[in-house]
Amino acid sequence: MTGTVELTHVHGDHLAVSVAGSGVELLRYVYRAEAPWEAPKPYIHPLRTLSGRVVTDYRPNDHRWHKGLQMTASHLSGQNLWGGNTYVHGEGYLALPERVGSMAHRGFDEVSVHDGGACITERLTWHPHSGEVWAEEARRVEVHDVDAATGSWALTWSSAVTNRREEPLRLGSPTTHGRPGAGYTGLFWRGPRAFRDGRILAPDGEGPELMGKQADWLAYSGEHDGVDGHATLVFVHSPENDHTGAGGAHPAHWFVRNTPFAAVAPSFAFHDELVLAPGETMTRRYRVLVADGAWDRDRIASRVGAMSW
């Protein structure tokens, strides 16, 4: 039932994880720096289902800085580590290149294949446009639960971001800066253009009205161009994220759109800024279940519940 994977490293450019013997590349983790205007940062693209169907978009013409699945920071103490224009309250989106920063790859501590999966651990630094080190990140990306029987596999993304400034680091979003319903920041997925108008599901809700709401998981199903069929991606909070804030942690809310494009982010600063004191670390862990087919709520809940953290 569970498959094995292979890992290929093109040094200075990317790592690729593939299903052994199938020729299907599940993901490509690209860590080379790209265009400064797009806030250079590592990203995953393409991301594929077990049948080889691509479920991410790359540099779409509406937002060139949208690149597959990536960790972002749309508003960071006055800087933009998201890419492109910066939202300014009362003025809208402005071209302010002096505010566009970057997340830089510094090294890998582990690149391995074991137990039927793969693990990548990486050190990164976060920078404003002027280049100082504002934060250090320890990142872990794992591929696991490759399961031909269910037509699915899982990716777990962990990030621990430590403030290295001598003053608080303020993580926000366009909504924290005055634009309603635009709380995008954090781990962000951009779906293929064909996934527009896809189905959005959560344990107790459905549709675009889940924007800005809280839930343990959120799923997006879209239909492919070029080949028959659908795919479903399920984004899941780990238990320690305490995403409701009930245990004292900063609460998270879902950013999700199915028009004019497909996008999902478990935003860590949708309605309110998250403030990190000097030396303080923000730790978040998420799971992305990638599945062939249009899964319903019961099937999603069963598969999510069957995977341990």
Results as ranks from 00 to 15, higher is better:
residue 187 L to G: 01
residue 227 V to N: 04
residue 305 G to W: 09
residue 231 A to L: 02
residue 231 A to G: 14
residue 263 A to T: 13
residue 272 D to T: 13
residue 230 H to N: 10
residue 188 F to N: 14
residue 191 G to N: 05
residue 296 D to F: 06
residue 221 S to F: 04
residue 181 G to K: 10
residue 222 G to Q: 01
residue 274 L to K: 04
residue 202 A to T: 14
residue 181 G to Q: 13
residue 265 A to I: 08
residue 184 Y to R: 05
residue 267 S to H: 10
residue 232 T to S: 10
residue 294 A to Q: 11
residue 222 G to S: 06
residue 240 E to A: 15
residue 238 S to N: 10
residue 189 W to D: 04
residue 186 G to Q: 06
residue 223 E to R: 15
residue 252 A to L: 14
residue 251 P to W: 13
residue 199 R to L: 12
residue 303 R to C: 05
residue 184 Y to T: 06
residue 232 T to Q: 03
residue 198 G to F: 06
residue 203 P to Q: 07
residue 284 R to Y: 08
residue 238 S to W: 01
residue 236 V to R: 00
residue 211 M to C: 12
residue 179 R to F: 07
residue 224 H to I: 10
residue 271 H to K: 07
residue 281 T to V: 11
residue 232 T to E: 12
residue 170 R to H: 10
residue 262 A to W: 02
residue 202 A to L: 07
residue 239 P to W: 07
residue 241 N to V: 14
residue 208 P to G: 11
residue 261 F to C: 07
residue 228 D to S: 10
residue 169 L to H: 08
residue 239 P to A: 15
residue 188 F to A: 12
residue 201 L to M: 09
residue 179 R to D: 04
residue 274 L to A: 11
residue 302 S to Q: 14
residue 203 P to E: 11
residue 213 K to W: 03
residue 201 L to H: 01
residue 194 A to K: 03
residue 288 V to K: 01
residue 294 A to T: 00
residue 298 D to S: 14
residue 266 P to Y: 07
residue 169 L to F: 11
residue 269 A to Y: 03
residue 196 R to D: 06
